[in-house]
Amino acid sequence: MNAETRERMNILGVLLDQTDYQKAYRQAERFLDSSGNKVIVTPNAEIIMAAQKNPELRAALNSADLCLPDGIGVVIASKILGKPLAERTTGFDFMMKLLELANKKSLSLFLLGGKPEVAEKAGEKICSMFPNVEIVGCHDGYFGENEEIEVVNLINHTKPDILLVAMGCPKQEIFMIKNKNKMQFKIAMGVGGSFDVLSGNVQRAPQFVQNIGLEWLYRLIMQPSRLKRVGALPAFLVKVISHRTINN
Score class of each variant (00 low, 15 high):
Lys178Ala: 01
Gly192Asn: 10
Gln172Arg: 07
Met176His: 08
Ile174His: 02
Gly192Ile: 03
Lys171Ser: 02
Lys171Trp: 05
Gly168His: 04
Ile174Gln: 05
Asp196Ser: 08
Met183Ser: 09
Lys178Arg: 14
Ile177Phe: 09
Asn179Glu: 10
Gly192Lys: 11
Gly192Met: 08
Gln172Gly: 07
Asn179Val: 02
Gly168Trp: 06
Pro170Leu: 15
Asn179Ala: 02
Gly168Arg: 06
Met176Tyr: 10
Met183Ala: 10
Lys182Leu: 11
Met167Val: 12
Ile174Phe: 04
Met167Pro: 14
Asn179Pro: 12
Gln172Tyr: 08
Lys178Trp: 04
Ile187Thr: 13
Lys180Arg: 08
Cys169Lys: 13
Ala166Arg: 03
Lys171Gly: 00
Val197Pro: 07
Lys186Asp: 12
Asn179Gln: 10
Glu173Cys: 14
Gly190Phe: 01
Ala188Lys: 05
Lys180Gln: 06
Gly192Gln: 08
Lys178Gln: 11
Asn179Met: 04
Gln172Asp: 10
Ser194Lys: 09
Phe185Ala: 04
Asn181Thr: 03
Gln184Leu: 12
Ala188Glu: 08
Lys178Asp: 05
Gln184Asn: 12
Gly193Lys: 02
Val165Ile: 14
Cys169Glu: 13
Phe175Asn: 00
Ser194Arg: 10
Phe185Asp: 00
Phe195Asn: 05
Lys182Arg: 15
Met176Val: 11
Gly192Cys: 10
Met167Ala: 14
Val197Trp: 11
Glu173Pro: 12
Gly190Met: 03
Met183Ile: 12
Phe185Pro: 00
Met167Gln: 13
Ile187Cys: 12
Lys182Met: 08
Met176Ser: 09
Ala166Ile: 04
Lys186Val: 08
Lys186Tyr: 06
Asn179His: 15
Phe175Val: 02
Ile174Tyr: 01
Phe185Thr: 02
Ile177Arg: 04
Val197Tyr: 12
Met189Cys: 07
Lys171Thr: 08
Lys182Asp: 11
Met189Leu: 03
Met189Pro: 10
Ile174Ala: 01
Ser194Tyr: 01
Pro170Gln: 13
Met176Leu: 15
Pro170Cys: 14
Phe195His: 00
